[in-house]
């Protein structure tokens, strides 16, 4: 294996660590409720990488079509009470009263291919994209799980469905408030679980280091830059980010928090973009 491939693989694991740890936290709690069909999500990335190059890119689109067709058929069969010799296999239901925990666990099962793809991604932007995609569904499920424990319920009880639905409603409500009011909706559930919080803090820190390492090592192939060239951007960037995050915490109940953060971010990006040197610049001749 090439040296490049090894460091890309290792740094990708570091970048994806938050998602990996969240999935590792989720999975032992919910795998009892997984349908055996969901385990096919574990096979998908493997299938992709062992299949011939020509059909490799078709694996995920085909899988999405098959899964959506299966869900649609299940819904139709449940809705119209159709009965035929295979109808017992189409039981995934999101619409009727007979909804089960199995139907929900699909959302965290989907995270697995995203995590694998994030680790295998060849570009840093690809890895970040998969990190965001995979953390979306895992955080959702972690939150739902925490709410279940608050309600003293279990995954098989109605408490799970309420928790899951409340999580969804709160997310949509928060999104609506962000767009219309410009501030976040703060609830009493502001500190869900110290363990998760610590886990996320540590893994996201490692993830930042992973991304910087990934970009730095990739750059070494083109031009070896000393570490001190990177130290200043990391130092200044972290200080400003910390200051803005603290400011956001202080102003979290107000409209100004998001506004100030947006101003800071946009100003920084505009300065970076404005100073962009595009053309060739002349350098002097030595006497």
């Amino acid at each position: 294996m090439k040296r490049d491939t090894v460091y890309i693989f290792i740094t990708n694991i570091l970048i994806m660590l938050p998602s990996i740890s969240m999935f590792a936290y989720d999975f032992p709690k919910e795998y009892h409720y997984w349908d055996y069909l969901w385990y096919l999500f574990f096979i998908l990335p493997v299938l992709k990488y062992i299949s011939p190059t020509r059909i490799r890119r078709l694996i995920y689109p085909l899988s999405i079509i098959i899964i959506l067709s299966y869900v649609l058929l299940s819904e139709l069969i449940q809705l119209y009470r159709v009965s035929f010799f295979l109808s017992n296999y189409f039981y995934v239901d999101f619409s009727s009263q007979n909804i089960t925990v199995i139907s929900y666990t699909i959302s965290s099962a989907v995270a697995f291919p995203f995590i694998v793809e994030g680790i295998m991604a060849k570009t840093p932007q690809g890895t970040i994209g998969y990190l965001i995609a995979s953390s979306t569904s895992t955080i959702y499920f972690i939150t739902a799980l925490y709410l279940v424990s608050l309600f003293h319920g279990s995954l098989s009880s109605n408490a799970f469905f309420y928790s899951y639905n409340i999580t969804g409603y709160l997310i949509f409500y928060n999104l609506y408030l962000l767009a219309s009011q410009g501030n976040e909706f703060i609830t009493l559930l502001i500190r869900p679980s110290p363990f998760i919080e610590n886990l996320l803090t540590v893994t996201f820190m490692i993830s930042i280091i992973g991304l910087i390492a990934r970009l730095y090592l990739q750059n070494q192939e083109i031009n070896r830059q000393p570490l001190e060239n990177m130290a200043y951007p990391i130092f200044y960037g972290s200080i400003i980010a910390l200051a803005v995050t603290l400011l956001l915490g202080k102003l979290s109940f107000t409209y100004y928090g998001i506004l100030l953060m947006a101003i800071f971010l946009i100003a920084t990006v505009v300065i970076a973009r404005h100073g962009n040197k595009k053309d060739n610049y002349e350098i002097g001749d030595m006497e």
């Binding site: 955080i139 502001i190 869900p192 919080e197 996201f204 803005v244 995050t245 956001l248 915490g249 920084t268």
Partner: peptide, 25 residues
């Protein structure tokens, strides 16, 4: 920011820190 509702401020810090580091670079 959407998930910040549940107290995951670290997520906000994570993304903001990376944006500022890259911009400063």
């Amino acid at each position: 920011l959407v998930y910040g509702l549940y107290g995951y401020e670290i997520l906000t810090f994570f993304f903001m820190a990376l944006i500022f580091i890259i911009s400063a670079d």
